Structures are given as C-alpha cells and as structure tokens.
Deep mutational scan, measured.
Amino acid sequence: EESQDIKALQKELEQFAKLLKQKRITLGYTQADVGLTLGVLFGKVFSQTTICRFEALQLSFKNMCKLRPLLQKWVEEAD
C-alpha cells in the first residue's frame, strides 16, 4: 500500500538526515559548506537554510526526496 511506502520513505529520510548531520559535524563542515560543495558536485548551490531545513526535516516530502540523492553523494564524497 502506498501510504506504507511513504511512511517507510519518511523514516528513511529521517535516518538519513540524522546521518548527514552527524557526518557533517564530525568532519567539521558547516551547513553552508555542504550547500557550496553540492554546487561544486552538481552545479547547483544550495543555501545554508536549505541544508538546515533538510536536517530538521522541515522541507516538503517532495523536496526531501529530490535533495536526498544529492546529499547522499555528498556523504559518500566527504570521506
């Protein structure tokens, strides 16, 4: 059922947002740094506010889903 899928996805997004924040802090990056690095990787800079709202799960579900693969890549590249 679709609502189950969405619930599962939301849970996954929550966990990912936590992971992103932990990783960012561990590596000593600011939210603005992450936004700028996305610009380098994908040619589209994201504001500190956007990263902040992603981490706080304050973006729309659709936006969270759109941003996630980009931030996933950041997490992979950041090591």
Score class of each variant (00 low, 15 high):
Leu41Lys: 08
Glu14Phe: 11
Lys7Asp: 13
Lys44Arg: 13
Ile25Glu: 08
Ala32His: 04
Thr26Ile: 07
Leu57Ser: 07
Lys44Val: 05
Thr30Val: 05
Leu13Pro: 07
Ala17Glu: 15
Val34Ser: 01
Gly43Ala: 07
Leu36Phe: 12
Asp79Ile: 08
Glu12Ile: 10
Met64Gln: 01
Thr50Leu: 02
Gly35Ala: 15
Ala8Glu: 11
Gln72Tyr: 03
Phe61Cys: 05
Gln15Phe: 10
Lys62Gln: 12
Glu77Ile: 11
Thr50Val: 12
Ala17Val: 09
Lys62Leu: 03
Lys73Tyr: 03
Arg68Pro: 01
Leu27Val: 03
Phe54Ser: 03
Thr26Arg: 14
Phe16Cys: 08
Leu20Ile: 09
Lys62Ser: 12
Pro69Thr: 02
Val45Phe: 09
Lys18Thr: 13
Phe16Ser: 00
Met64Lys: 07
Arg68Gln: 06
Val45Arg: 12
Val75Arg: 02
Lys21Leu: 00
Lys66Ile: 05
Leu38His: 07
Arg68Asp: 02
Leu38Val: 04
Leu59Thr: 03
Leu9Glu: 12
Ser47Phe: 10
Ser60Asn: 01
Glu2Ser: 12
Phe16Met: 10
Arg24Val: 11
Leu57Phe: 13
Asp33Arg: 11
Pro69Val: 05
Glu55Gly: 02
Ile25Met: 13
Trp74Cys: 04
Lys7Arg: 10
Glu55Lys: 04
Gly39Lys: 09
Cys65Arg: 09
Lys23Thr: 06
Gln72Cys: 10
Asp33Ala: 03
Ser60Trp: 06
Phe16Arg: 05
Ala8Gln: 14
Phe42Ser: 11
Thr50Lys: 02
Thr26Lys: 05
Gln72Pro: 05
Val40Phe: 02
Gly43Pro: 07
Glu55Val: 00
Val34Asp: 05
Ala78Arg: 07
Arg68Thr: 05
Asp33Val: 00
Asp79Tyr: 04
Val45His: 12
Gly43Glu: 00
Asn63Ala: 12
Phe61Lys: 08
Glu76Trp: 05
Gly43Val: 03
Thr26Ala: 14
Leu36Arg: 14
Lys44Ala: 04
Phe16Val: 01
Phe42Leu: 04
Asn63Trp: 01
Thr30His: 05
Ser47Val: 00
Gln15Glu: 13
Leu9Lys: 15
Leu19Thr: 04
Lys44Glu: 12
Asn63Phe: 09
Leu41Asn: 04
Ala78Asn: 01
Ile25Val: 15
Phe46Gln: 14
Gln31Arg: 04
Pro69Lys: 07
Leu9Trp: 08
Glu1Val: 05
Ala56Leu: 08
Lys62Trp: 01
Gln10Met: 11
Cys65Ile: 15
Gln48Leu: 05
Lys21Gly: 02
Thr37Gln: 15
Phe16Thr: 01
Gly43Leu: 02
Met64Asn: 03
Ile6Met: 13
Gln10Gly: 08
Gln48Met: 15
Glu12Asp: 06
Gln48Ser: 14
Gln72Ala: 06
Val45Ser: 12
Ser60Arg: 03
Gly28Cys: 02
Cys65Met: 11
Val40Thr: 15
Val40Glu: 13
Ser47Gln: 09
Ile6Phe: 13
Leu41Thr: 11
Leu19Lys: 15
Phe46Val: 15
Gln4Phe: 11
Glu14Cys: 04
Trp74Arg: 01
Lys44His: 09
Lys11Arg: 08
Cys52Ile: 11
Asn63Thr: 07
Ala32Thr: 11
Glu76Gly: 02
Leu70Ala: 12
Leu71Ala: 04
Lys7Val: 10
Val45Cys: 10
Ser3Arg: 10
Met64Trp: 02
Thr30Lys: 01
Glu12His: 11
Lys7Ile: 05
Leu27Trp: 09
Phe46Glu: 07
Phe46Cys: 15
Asn63Arg: 12
Thr37Ile: 10
Glu1Cys: 11
Phe54Tyr: 04
Asp79Thr: 10
Glu1Leu: 10
Thr26Gln: 10
Lys62Ile: 08
Gln31Cys: 15
Gly35Met: 01
Gly28Ile: 04
Lys21Pro: 06
Lys18Gln: 12
Gln48Trp: 09
Leu67Gln: 01
Glu12Trp: 08
Gln72Arg: 07
Ala78Ser: 10
Leu9Met: 14
Cys52Phe: 06
Leu57Trp: 06
Ile6Gly: 10
Cys52Glu: 13
Val40Ile: 12
Ile6His: 03
